[in-house]
């Protein structure tokens, strides 16, 4: 009897699913963000969320759950009901660096059903304009002359910015002193004020200071020059092998979310990210939109996580 019942119920569930995804969404969608308001993951969620509301007529609520190295939001996102009503906007750090840093993790990549990549913010290696360093070669020569005596600021321990620093140091056989700050803004201020000679910053926070003549960009950290500032050379073009990193964001659903819902979300988000006004909004902050499929995102995360784990281990980056 029980077996019959189970069969009937699961049959009903199977039958019900396509209906569900056709009518989805029927209630507000929540996007969990592991960061405080103002960061790129937050702003990306709000831009995309506003457009989803326009398209589907359902409210999209952005929930900032900052802290705990992203554990709180990412853990909640992984364990949320897989119905497409709780999504997570993560950054590359949450899925490719944090897992390499901590032994015990409240979530893993397999807990999520990837929807797609969203935005890509280029980063730059910048120097204070009053320092003598004009190119990456100057800087590396300086670092070789006095190993470990050149300070490089970053927005924090375990940030993608720090990874770029350690990656560069490993691949060029140099040593720097890493100075972590509480976020990008204080690091940019310290560099502009001349407290430190170098910092690795989001290109959007370095841009205005470069225009004002306080900072000088030595290199962008991606493999390709930034679309917004093609005049800045890459690290790779200046002899730093392999280093390729930027701060990108990605949208996730919990594992087990019906494929139809994930696909519907992916299609709509990709459509939104291709809209000229959305692109323009992101571009205002020096950020590109990078729509992708779930499979592409999955491959990118796996590749990046593998790459960065090696650097974390070799450079002995540790949260404690």
């Amino acid at each position: 009897m029980r077996m019959v019942l189970t069969a009937v119920v699961s049959g009903l569930v199977l039958l019900a699913q396509p209906v569900h995804s056709q009518t989805y969404p029927t209630k507000p969608i929540h996007i969990l963000v592991p960061y405080a308001p103002g960061g790129i993951a937050d702003i990306a969620s709000r831009i995309v969320g506003a457009k989803l509301t326009e398209a589907w007529g359902q409210q999209v609520v952005v929930e900032n759950r900052p802290g705990g190295n992203g554990f709180i939001a990412m853990g909640a996102g992984a364990k949320a009901a897989p119905d497409g009503y709780t999504l997570t906007m993560a950054t590359v750090g949450d899925v490719a660096i944090t897992p390499a840093l901590f032994k015990e993790m409240p979530y893993k990549w397999d807990d999520f059903a990837p929807i797609g990549t969203v935005s890509d913010a280029p980063m730059v290696w910048a120097a204070n304009a009053n320092t003598p360093y004009k190119t990456v070669a100057d800087m590396l020569a300086g670092a070789k002359a006095q190993p470990g005596r050149l300070s490089v600021g970053s927005p924090g321990n375990g940030s993608i910015n720090q990874i770029v620093l350690e990656w560069t140091a490993l691949n060029t056989g140099t040593q720097f002193q890493h100075i972590p700050y509480k976020g990008g803004a204080p690091a940019a201020a310290a560099l502009a004020g001349g407290d430190i000679p170098f910092a690795i910053l989001a290109s959007s926070s370095a841009g205005p200071q470069v225009k004002a003549g306080r900072l000088r960009v030595l290199a962008v950290t991606g493999a390709q020059p930034s679309k917004f500032n093609p005049e800045w050379p890459t690290l790779q073009s200046q002899g730093v092998k392999d280093v390729d990193a930027s701060n990108w964001t990605l949208l996730l659903a919990p594992k087990g979310t019906p494929k139809a819902i994930v696909d519907k979300l992916q299609a709509e988000v990709a459509k939104i990210l291709a809209m000229p006004d959305v692109k323009e909004r992101f571009a205002g902050g020096g950020v590109e939109t990078i729509p992708s499929t779930g499979a592409e995102l999955d491959a990118r995360v796996k590749k990046t996580a593998q790459q960065l784990a090696v650097i974390v281990e070799k450079a002995k980056i540790k949260p404690d």
């Binding site: 405080a36 308001p37 103002g38 937050d42 702003i43 831009i47 976020g183 803004a185 940019a188 201020a189 502009a192 959007s204 926070s205 841009g207 205005p208 200071q209 225009k211 004002a212 323009e280 909004r281 571009a283 205002g284 902050g285 020096g286």
Partner: peptide
């Protein structure tokens, strides 16, 4: 300077950037 002194200011800078204005000396 384009440097926010607290989280609320950081958000205002975000709002300006979305409008296509890079806050800063200019």
């Amino acid at each position: 300077l384009g440097i926010p002194s607290n989280p609320t200011m950081a958000l205002m800078i975000g709002a300006l950037m979305i409008q296509g204005i890079a806050p800063g000396p200019q």
